[in-house]
């Protein structure tokens, strides 16, 4: 048990050392700005590698975008303005947290639809099973009735 946790620690430390090695930019001296920078690098998706955030990717474009992001934060832009800047160039694709628009209604509604669909299926099978039990009782009743009759 102890050994297994040790392994996890080693893997985790390796993972984090790899992840932090990607971003070579100097940190902001202002901790608030640095926190915003780190949050945004994890929210923005690398358009080239597509399954990494720009914090995790060592692709050239991810590095370019980190430079832009840092400059925008340094220039006093809000997170909303930065998102607008990025989507004007790379569409909503760069956002790991896409906005609710007519195009994404289905995406945002899909968890609810799946739950409702599952509830519907469950309700149907419950009703069916209940009916089968009722029918079974009815058959038993009629059986006993015929037995009585004969």
């Amino acid at each position: 048990m102890k050994l297994r946790y040790g392994w996890l620690l080693v893997i985790a430390s390796l993972w984090f050392s790899l992840a932090s090695a990607v971003d070579t930019q100097e940190a902001f001296t202002d901790p608030v700005k640095q926190a915003r920078y780190e949050a945004m690098t994890h929210e923005l998706r690398c358009p080239k590698c597509q399954n990494n955030s720009i914090a995790d990717s060592d692709a050239g474009i991810a590095s370019n975008l980190r430079v832009q992001l840092k400059a925008l934060i340094a220039a006093g832009k809000s997170d909303e303005e930065i998102r607008a800047y990025m989507t004007a160039r790379y569409s909503d694709f760069v956002l790991y947290n896409p906005p609710v628009t007519p195009r994404t209604y289905l995406l945002w509604a899909s968890p609810l639809l799946l739950v409702l669909g599952g509830l519907g299926l469950a309700a149907r099978s419950i009703v069916k099973r209940a009916r089968m039990i009722d029918d079974g009782e009815a058959i038993e009743d009629s059986d006993s009735a015929t037995e009585q009759g004969s």
Binding site: P47, G60, I61, S63, N64, V67, Q68, R89, S91
Partner: peptide
Amino acid sequence: VEGQAAVDFGVYG
């Protein structure tokens, strides 16, 4: 060199 124009054009690959 800095990739400013590339980012403005939405270039990624």
